[in-house]
Design a protein around this nucleic acid. Structure first.
Lengths: 197, 197
DNA sequence: GTCTATAAGTAGATAGAC
DNA sequence: GTCTATCTACTTATAGAC
């Protein structure tokens, strides 16, 4: 493969990533994608066999972005509380740059739940819960699941509700400030949860 | 209008409600909707001018279902804590019956944020926050916004993540049990939040 | 590698018979 | 009120020139 082909491929991937996340699978038109990527429509099929094939690679990347880094953070050599606080920071940093990511991933997962198994790999998810419970030595596995759900809820949902929250504010900068205010708030809540387990 | 026309109209609305929520606006095909409703495709356009018009009435109903009842609960003549706990119960009860509702609403709001203003009425949302802060007598308005976001996050997100959470369980009944376990957990968290304001 | 042209199928919407 | 048939536009995907 030449260098130019890799560049074109990347231009398509970048545009597809942004457009799929914005519009979902059914909402994206191949022509619009070609325009946005600055390439010819025929090239989309030359580099990726079909719309579905292109979507699959984008979706894999999206799920990885949404879950991958927090799984790593959950496995670090730190106290449980420090790891939880670390995950909060990772989430807020990632999602401030990419606020539409979660609603896209969960909508597509809801539309086609089989994709969970195919692209995500259930094992990595179990790893996340296990990393927090440390095989039951720190907290029981069932409690760890509740903890993970609460943590992800508090971190991720505000971004999914962004269009609504924005109605209470003047602009995007206000939203960012609101999120920054939540950072210590969520950490404190999670610390309290740890005490009550 | 005759009685039969009302029945047909209702059959269409019911099928559209389920299908739009399952597939989103772009994913729904009018033919599939006609099949599911047990009516002819032409009738869809006879009763509702267009797909968009049909969607609009479904979306209004969906937003109302997701926010309407909690706004009422927030305004009841009770202590702030009792109202918060009441909202948790309303959410869990509603969403156990209709788990796909939130991801649909937030996906469509994200796709077309103008719909917030058009169909929801920003005023009712402000009312919710105001009801909780009671015009600043109970808690400041900014804190009330954080409280509402935290509460809705903890109640709604687990349903949006249902396809993922289900991977940790055997069946739908297990998921319902998991949600029931969360009911006191979330209430206790919210009570703690009230103390720290 | 990139483009144009077009195939093949399907979408929403409408007209008109019954 | 309900159905069949059909129109027009647009969709993904491909074939083949350059």
């Amino acid at each position: 493969m030449g260098k130019k082909s890799e560049i074109t491929r990347q231009k398509i991937m970048d545009a597809a990533y942004r457009l799929f996340i914005e519009k979902g699978y059914d909402g994206l038109r191949m022509q619009e994608l070609a325009d946005r990527a600055g390439v010819n429509k025929g090239l989309l099929h030359h580099y990726f066999r079909s719309k579905q094939a292109l979507f699959n690679s984008i979706f894999t990347r999206s799920v990885d972005e949404l879950f991958g880094r927090i799984i790593d953070t959950a496995g670090e050599e730190k106290t449980l509380e420090a790891r939880l606080h670390g995950i909060v920071d990772v989430y807020f940093d990632t999602l401030l740059d990419n606020p539409q990511l979660p609603v896209f991933v969960f909508f597509e997962l809801n539309r086609n739940p089989q994709q969970v198994l195919a692209y995500f790999g259930l094992e990595r998810l179990r790893l996340l819960v296990n990393n927090l419970s440390a095989n039951g030595r720190e907290i029981p596995i069932r409690q760890a699941l509740h903890m993970v759900v609460s943590m992800v809820s508090l971190c991720v949902f505000p971004f999914m509700a962004r269009p609504v929250i924005l109605q209470f504010m003047k602009n995007q900068a206000d939203f960012s400030r609101f999120i920054e205010e939540r950072r210590p708030l969520v950490k404190s809540l999670l610390s309290h949860m740890l005490l009550t387990l």
